[in-house]
Amino acid sequence: MRLTVWTARVLNPIVWRRRRGVVRKLHQFALAERASMVDMRQAARLTPSPERAAAYLRHADDEARHAHMFLRRAQEVARTSSLPAPGALRVDTEHLFDTLGEVAFLAFVHYGEARARRQFETYQDWFLANGRDKDHALFDAVLADERRHERYTYAFLCELSGSEAAAKAAVRRAFWWEAKRRWLRSGRTVATAIYFVCSWLLYVVLLVWVPVIRLARPALRRWQQRPNALT
């Protein structure tokens, strides 16, 4: 059993039990799908092939629909549980097509789709076993698309990289690239925590300047005349 599947199976009862957790998780999925939509649209713009651009646009359309479905379900759960509504979908993206090039981008997307599909399948099993029909239906609809994305990206990858062996090698590289990225992210999390502690220490040191600044540079009110500057 793969680590993704094992982790998802272990965590399912914890993640999906509490309503607040459900809202948060569904909202995270909506954000991820939305970010993926932006990446796929950028890919459509940048690839030289109209056929691949068309496939990327269809993919982006699916991701936009998934984001909408996840958000709607998150809002519904929040509403029925009297929880705060999840916020709007503000996306960030790493511009992966720009960074990686088309082959590595396709390998990464294929790898990500396969991982998501495996993870979603464990969710489906759990929802089925626990009588969560609405959530089961939601993931069922999404999974059909994830499987299609997994297939078409692999077909393009084989075509672009020249052979199936080269495509598999590209997917392996995507795995290691992603692992390295996760490692760096965890390093960043630790560094951020250390930075916050250090900067708060610095903040305390600022205390000595507070009376000086308040006296010498108070906040100004009403009109201020500036030296006349001409261009």
Binding site: Y195, F196, S199, W200, L202, Y203, L206, L207, W209, V210, I213, R214, R217, P218, A219
Partner: peptide, 20 residues
């Protein structure tokens, strides 16, 4: 920076983010 110092200590939460 002036604003962060003027509003000390209410700016403690903002300080690390603004500095970064």
């Amino acid at each position: 920076m002036l604003q962060l110092v003027r509003t000390f200590p209410r700016s403690w939460r903002q300080f690390p983010r603004a500095l970064a």
